[in-house]
Simulated scan of single mutants.
Amino acid sequence: MSSVQQLIQNAEPHWRAYIEHDFVLRLADGTLDKRCFQHYLKQDYRYLFHYNRALALALFKAENFAQMEQAHHAIQTILQESKLHVTFCQRWGIAETELLQTPESAACVAYTRYVLDCGINGSLVDLYAAIAPCALGYAEIARHIVERQLSPPGNPYQDWIDTYASDDFQLATAELTDFLDQLCQELTAKQRTKVQTIFNTATRMEVAFWQMGLDLS
Protein backbone atom coordinates (compact mmCIF):
# COMPACT_ATOMS: atom_id res chain seq x y z
CA MET A 1 0.00 0.00 0.00
CA SER A 2 1.38 3.41 -0.97
CA SER A 3 1.78 6.26 1.51
CA VAL A 4 -1.14 8.13 -0.02
CA GLN A 5 -3.37 5.05 0.16
CA GLN A 6 -2.46 4.76 3.84
CA LEU A 7 -3.29 8.42 4.41
CA ILE A 8 -6.72 7.91 2.85
CA GLN A 9 -7.37 4.68 4.74
CA ASN A 10 -6.34 6.23 8.06
CA ALA A 11 -8.53 9.29 7.40
CA GLU A 12 -11.72 7.26 7.89
CA PRO A 13 -14.48 7.93 8.71
CA HIS A 14 -13.83 11.49 7.51
CA TRP A 15 -12.84 10.40 4.01
CA ARG A 16 -16.09 8.49 3.51
CA ALA A 17 -18.07 11.49 4.81
CA TYR A 18 -16.22 13.64 2.27
CA ILE A 19 -16.67 11.60 -0.91
CA GLU A 20 -20.19 10.47 -0.05
CA HIS A 21 -21.52 13.74 1.34
CA ASP A 22 -25.15 14.65 0.62
CA PHE A 23 -23.93 17.55 -1.52
CA VAL A 24 -22.03 15.07 -3.71
CA LEU A 25 -24.89 12.58 -3.90
CA ARG A 26 -27.38 15.28 -4.90
CA LEU A 27 -24.95 16.67 -7.44
CA ALA A 28 -24.52 13.18 -8.89
CA ASP A 29 -28.25 12.55 -9.36
CA GLY A 30 -29.03 16.13 -10.40
CA THR A 31 -31.26 16.97 -7.42
CA LEU A 32 -28.91 19.52 -5.82
CA ASP A 33 -30.61 22.89 -5.34
CA LYS A 34 -29.28 25.43 -7.85
CA ARG A 35 -28.72 27.99 -5.10
CA CYS A 36 -26.49 25.54 -3.23
CA PHE A 37 -24.35 24.95 -6.30
CA GLN A 38 -24.08 28.66 -7.01
CA HIS A 39 -23.04 29.33 -3.42
CA TYR A 40 -20.44 26.57 -3.67
CA LEU A 41 -19.10 27.99 -6.96
CA LYS A 42 -18.61 31.44 -5.49
CA GLN A 43 -16.78 30.09 -2.45
CA ASP A 44 -14.73 27.72 -4.60
CA TYR A 45 -13.44 30.72 -6.53
CA ARG A 46 -12.21 32.24 -3.26
CA TYR A 47 -10.74 28.88 -2.32
CA LEU A 48 -8.77 28.68 -5.59
CA PHE A 49 -7.12 32.02 -4.83
CA HIS A 50 -5.77 30.84 -1.50
CA TYR A 51 -4.96 27.39 -2.90
CA ASN A 52 -2.60 29.08 -5.34
CA ARG A 53 -1.07 31.13 -2.55
CA ALA A 54 -0.30 27.83 -0.82
CA LEU A 55 1.31 26.49 -3.99
CA ALA A 56 3.49 29.59 -4.07
CA LEU A 57 4.73 28.53 -0.64
CA ALA A 58 5.47 25.10 -2.11
CA LEU A 59 7.65 26.80 -4.71
CA PHE A 60 9.48 28.67 -1.96
CA LYS A 61 9.95 25.57 0.19
CA ALA A 62 11.17 23.35 -2.65
CA GLU A 63 14.52 21.70 -2.00
CA ASN A 64 15.46 21.09 -5.63
CA PHE A 65 14.51 22.12 -9.15
CA ALA A 66 12.27 19.08 -9.66
CA GLN A 67 10.14 20.12 -6.68
CA MET A 68 10.10 23.69 -7.99
CA GLU A 69 8.90 22.45 -11.37
CA GLN A 70 6.10 20.49 -9.70
CA ALA A 71 4.91 23.59 -7.82
CA HIS A 72 5.31 25.87 -10.83
CA HIS A 73 3.25 23.55 -13.02
CA ALA A 74 0.53 23.36 -10.37
CA ILE A 75 0.44 27.16 -10.06
CA GLN A 76 0.03 27.57 -13.81
CA THR A 77 -2.74 24.97 -13.80
CA ILE A 78 -4.69 26.75 -11.05
CA LEU A 79 -4.25 30.13 -12.75
CA GLN A 80 -5.81 28.65 -15.88
CA GLU A 81 -8.51 26.90 -13.86
CA SER A 82 -9.44 30.19 -12.18
CA LYS A 83 -10.14 31.74 -15.59
CA LEU A 84 -12.23 28.75 -16.63
CA HIS A 85 -14.03 28.98 -13.31
CA VAL A 86 -15.12 32.55 -14.11
CA THR A 87 -16.52 31.40 -17.46
CA PHE A 88 -18.25 28.43 -15.83
CA CYS A 89 -19.80 30.68 -13.18
CA GLN A 90 -21.14 33.01 -15.87
CA ARG A 91 -23.08 30.07 -17.31
CA TRP A 92 -24.68 29.70 -13.88
CA GLY A 93 -25.68 33.36 -13.72
CA ILE A 94 -22.77 34.54 -11.58
CA ALA A 95 -20.91 37.57 -12.94
CA GLU A 96 -17.19 38.04 -12.30
CA THR A 97 -17.94 41.16 -10.26
CA GLU A 98 -20.12 39.07 -7.96
CA LEU A 99 -17.32 36.53 -7.53
CA LEU A 100 -14.92 39.28 -6.52
CA GLN A 101 -17.38 40.89 -4.12
CA THR A 102 -18.61 37.73 -2.39
CA PRO A 103 -17.37 37.54 1.23
CA GLU A 104 -15.58 34.36 2.20
CA SER A 105 -17.67 31.92 4.17
CA ALA A 106 -16.49 30.76 7.56
CA ALA A 107 -15.82 27.30 6.09
CA CYS A 108 -13.65 28.78 3.34
CA VAL A 109 -11.69 30.94 5.77
CA ALA A 110 -11.09 28.02 8.12
CA TYR A 111 -9.99 25.66 5.37
CA THR A 112 -7.73 27.97 3.38
CA ARG A 113 -6.04 29.55 6.38
CA TYR A 114 -5.36 26.11 7.80
CA VAL A 115 -3.66 25.10 4.55
CA LEU A 116 -1.62 28.31 4.52
CA ASP A 117 -0.65 27.79 8.15
CA CYS A 118 0.63 24.30 7.30
CA GLY A 119 2.64 25.81 4.46
CA ILE A 120 4.08 28.69 6.45
CA ASN A 121 4.97 26.79 9.61
CA GLY A 122 5.47 23.27 8.32
CA SER A 123 7.59 21.37 5.84
CA LEU A 124 6.94 20.80 2.15
CA VAL A 125 5.31 17.43 2.85
CA ASP A 126 3.10 19.07 5.50
CA LEU A 127 1.87 21.54 2.90
CA TYR A 128 1.13 18.88 0.28
CA ALA A 129 -0.66 16.76 2.89
CA ALA A 130 -2.94 19.74 3.49
CA ILE A 131 -3.74 20.40 -0.18
CA ALA A 132 -3.91 16.79 -1.40
CA PRO A 133 -7.41 15.84 -0.13
CA CYS A 134 -8.99 18.39 -2.46
CA ALA A 135 -7.63 16.96 -5.72
CA LEU A 136 -7.64 13.34 -4.57
CA GLY A 137 -11.22 13.53 -3.36
CA TYR A 138 -12.60 15.32 -6.41
CA ALA A 139 -10.94 12.80 -8.70
CA GLU A 140 -12.38 9.86 -6.73
CA ILE A 141 -15.86 11.43 -6.55
CA ALA A 142 -16.10 12.12 -10.28
CA ARG A 143 -14.61 8.74 -11.20
CA HIS A 144 -17.14 6.89 -9.05
CA ILE A 145 -20.07 8.86 -10.45
CA VAL A 146 -19.03 7.95 -14.00
CA GLU A 147 -18.09 4.32 -13.28
CA ARG A 148 -21.32 3.65 -11.36
CA GLN A 149 -23.40 5.60 -13.89
CA LEU A 150 -24.99 7.64 -11.11
CA SER A 151 -25.60 10.71 -13.24
CA PRO A 152 -28.93 10.65 -15.15
CA PRO A 153 -29.38 12.06 -18.68
CA GLY A 154 -29.79 15.81 -18.61
CA ASN A 155 -28.04 16.25 -15.25
CA PRO A 156 -27.40 20.02 -14.96
CA TYR A 157 -24.15 19.26 -13.13
CA GLN A 158 -22.73 16.98 -15.81
CA ASP A 159 -20.10 19.54 -16.86
CA TRP A 160 -18.74 19.62 -13.31
CA ILE A 161 -18.61 15.82 -13.22
CA ASP A 162 -16.94 15.63 -16.63
CA THR A 163 -14.28 18.15 -15.61
CA TYR A 164 -13.03 16.08 -12.70
CA ALA A 165 -13.56 12.73 -14.41
CA SER A 166 -11.52 13.90 -17.43
CA ASP A 167 -8.29 12.17 -18.36
CA ASP A 168 -6.37 15.42 -17.76
CA PHE A 169 -7.58 15.83 -14.19
CA GLN A 170 -7.20 12.15 -13.38
CA LEU A 171 -3.63 12.23 -14.72
CA ALA A 172 -2.79 15.37 -12.75
CA THR A 173 -4.11 13.71 -9.59
CA ALA A 174 -2.05 10.58 -10.27
CA GLU A 175 1.05 12.78 -10.62
CA LEU A 176 0.25 14.52 -7.34
CA THR A 177 -0.16 11.11 -5.69
CA ASP A 178 3.24 9.97 -6.94
CA PHE A 179 4.85 13.22 -5.78
CA LEU A 180 3.36 13.00 -2.29
CA ASP A 181 4.40 9.34 -2.10
CA GLN A 182 7.97 10.41 -2.84
CA LEU A 183 7.88 13.11 -0.17
CA CYS A 184 6.67 10.54 2.39
CA GLN A 185 9.38 7.98 1.71
CA GLU A 186 11.96 9.21 4.21
CA LEU A 187 9.61 10.34 6.98
CA THR A 188 10.14 9.22 10.54
CA ALA A 189 7.27 7.70 12.50
CA LYS A 190 6.74 11.03 14.29
CA GLN A 191 6.65 12.93 11.00
CA ARG A 192 4.19 10.44 9.52
CA THR A 193 1.88 10.96 12.47
CA LYS A 194 1.96 14.72 11.90
CA VAL A 195 1.30 14.33 8.17
CA GLN A 196 -1.63 12.02 8.89
CA THR A 197 -3.11 14.53 11.31
CA ILE A 198 -2.84 17.27 8.69
CA PHE A 199 -4.42 15.07 6.02
CA ASN A 200 -7.27 14.14 8.38
CA THR A 201 -7.92 17.76 9.26
CA ALA A 202 -7.94 18.90 5.64
CA THR A 203 -10.38 16.09 4.84
CA ARG A 204 -12.67 17.29 7.64
CA MET A 205 -12.43 20.78 6.14
CA GLU A 206 -13.61 19.37 2.79
CA VAL A 207 -16.64 17.87 4.54
CA ALA A 208 -17.38 21.27 6.06
CA PHE A 209 -17.04 22.92 2.64
CA TRP A 210 -19.71 20.62 1.16
CA GLN A 211 -21.93 21.28 4.17
CA MET A 212 -21.47 25.01 3.67
CA GLY A 213 -22.86 24.55 0.16
CA LEU A 214 -25.92 22.70 1.40
CA ASP A 215 -26.55 25.13 4.26
CA LEU A 216 -25.95 28.26 2.15
CA SER A 217 -23.81 29.38 5.08
Rank of each mutant, 00 (worst) to 15 (best):
S151N: 12
A106I: 08
A58M: 13
F65N: 14
T203Q: 07
F179M: 00
Q158S: 07
L7N: 04
L183N: 05
Q67W: 02
C118F: 11
L79V: 07
Y111T: 00
V4I: 12
W160C: 04
Y114W: 09
H85L: 03
P133R: 07
A132E: 12
A172H: 06
A165R: 10
S2W: 08
Y157F: 12
E20F: 14
L84M: 13
I141A: 01
P103G: 06
R143F: 00
Q170K: 02
L55M: 14
Q43K: 01
L48Y: 05
L171F: 15
R53H: 13
Y45W: 10
C89D: 01
S82L: 12
M212Y: 04
A106Q: 15
D29L: 00
E104G: 01
K194S: 13
H85E: 06
F65H: 11
E104A: 04
L136H: 06
F60E: 15
M212L: 00
Q76P: 00
N52V: 02
T203E: 08
A58Q: 11
Q158P: 06
L116V: 07
C184L: 14
W210T: 06
Q149Y: 10
L32R: 00
I141S: 08
A130C: 11
A132T: 14
Y138W: 04
C108V: 05
P153G: 02
A58D: 06
S166C: 11
A139P: 00
Y111I: 02
V195G: 06
T177N: 04
T77V: 15
H14Y: 15
A208T: 06
F179Q: 07
K194I: 14
Y114E: 13
D162Q: 11
P13N: 03
V4K: 07
E81Q: 10
S123H: 07
K42I: 04
T102H: 04
C118I: 05
A58N: 13
R192A: 13
L27D: 04
H50W: 09
G213T: 07
S105R: 10
D44G: 05
M68S: 13
Q5Y: 01
Q90T: 03
T188C: 09
Y51D: 10
A172W: 03
S123D: 14
A28R: 01
A106N: 13
P133M: 05
A132S: 15
D215Q: 12
W160T: 01
S151T: 09
E69A: 11
Q191A: 15
A71T: 07
V115A: 07
Q67T: 02
D126W: 06
V4A: 12
L116Q: 05
L150N: 09
A174M: 13
F60C: 11
I94H: 12
E12S: 03
V125Q: 10
P133I: 01
V4D: 14
C108F: 03
A189Q: 11
Q170N: 09
Y45R: 07
C89G: 10
L187P: 11
